[in-house]
Design a protein around this nucleic acid. Structure first.
Ligand code: MN
Ligand code: MN
Ligand code: MN
Ligand code: MN
Lengths: 221, 221
DNA sequence: AAATAAATTTAGGCAAACCTAAAAATTATA
DNA sequence: TATAATTTTTAGGTTTGCCTAAATTTATTT
């Protein structure tokens, strides 16, 4: 596996995340994600294609190939292991880890990452509940459901949060919602799709549709 | 304290180390240290001068000013804390830590470094025996002497190694010489300045002048 | 099926950090 | 103190990764 620049690594990671939802990624989409201009995306797509990391036909969008996916997964592995380290060992809160991991992930020494993994006890998920790829880049796919799809009065365990801005994480922290929290939905209001939820013995409270859409739970069916 | 590029940080650190021996650093000297060409040094010196990090007169060499020294010390702090982390927590050998720390040192989040320091128990020296600057950039200056100046038959404790190439560190490891090792000089040979030394209960053996010049000891006078 | 709108690419530039070759300044030597 | 050698700087390029503005292609409306 060759060495890639910080920019190339950030592009690969962003494409990986975007193509999970869409099948193929568009120039504008990626430009927005990376806070750059569409012209810069086209430049980089030519380069990444030349380096055989993705498939790209002008005007037709792009998609990582098998090799590009493998590279993306090693970067995601680094990112999530560092996030776990920051949260677990350095007592960073879960809304602070992402920004720092965004830089640490580009230190590409393999021994460093594998030893870190071992030191941390081979964690399987990062502080946001996202799975950590193993040494071989294998990633665990768990069947999580969105809280809006959780049947009423049925306990679900918070497994991950899709939006990871510090704003949402701050709000969740304030509401005592964290990975592992047991949640039950009491009622859904059709008017604005808000819902009343209950956590443990606390009094029930209401959350907005916007927030609910970002909370995923493991649902012991 | 502003943010500097990876290149700028590497230049600052190199100048700091070079000016400890010489008073002022020359273009060629720094080019050699950084494996670049003299013309590149001149380019960068103009930039660092414009950023008020050093004093520089064309053809007259350069020297960090107070502010540049402070910046250099925060980079050295990061470098040595990561070296300590790698050796202590990730079981890297002391000849492997430098290369990785060379990359990790450029992640400039202050909270990360201060928390890492705390996590490691505020270590005072890195795996090569070099002092780690504290939160305020303060560095401990210890009065070490070179082993060639150690009186015969007097125990000294290895405190640091000046050359830190993996070649020398590998050799020292093989010879069972590490930070903290107690050494006694049995005899010096004027012919080639080699010397016979003794470590603990081991049989005495000979080391070259070249090697000896890199070993510094704390000498309980 | 035109016409219009939106998305994407191309063309041409810029800054950072390098480089080589030539010019200029400094230092050493005869 | 000239002359030669060495060191340093300048001039002019290159590559990477970004930008704006214009051209082109594709998609959406009438
Ligand atoms: Mn990143
Ligand atoms: Mn994460
Ligand atoms: Mn470095
Ligand atoms: Mn060191």
């Amino acid at each position: 596996m060759l060495n890639y620049s910080i920019s190339e690594e950030n592009y690969l990671k962003a494409i990986y995340h975007l193509q999970k939802t869409d099948g193929t990624v568009s120039t504008n989409e990626l430009a927005k994600e990376l806070n750059t201009k569409p012209a810069s995306i086209t430049d980089m797509m030519k380069k990444l294609k030349a380096k055989k990391l993705l498939n790209y036909q002008p005007y037709r969008g792009f998609r990582l190939n098998a090799y590009g996916t493998k590279v993306a997964l090693t970067i995601i592995r680094r990112h999530r292991l560092w996030e776990f380290f920051l949260a677990q060992k350095l007592k960073f809160s879960w809304d602070e880890v992402h920004e720092v991991a965004e830089e640490l992930e580009h230190v590409s020494n393999k021994k460093l990452i594998d030893r870190l993994d071992e030191f941390l006890g081979f964690p399987r998920v990062d502080p946001h509940g996202d799975p950590i790829p193993d040494v071989n880049g294998k990633i665990e796919v768990s069947k999580k459901i969105n809280i809006t799809e959780l049947p009423l009065h049925t306990a679900g365990t918070v497994a991950s949060i899709s939006d990871q801005s510090s704003e949402i994480l701050e709000l969740l922290e304030h509401r005592n919602i964290t990975i592992g929290t047991k949640i039950e939905v009491n009622k859904k209001f059709e008017f604005d799709n808000s819902m009343e939820i209950k956590i443990g013995r606390q009094a029930a409270f209401t959350i907005s549709e916007q927030l609910a859409k970002n909370i995923f739970v493991d649902h012991a069916k």
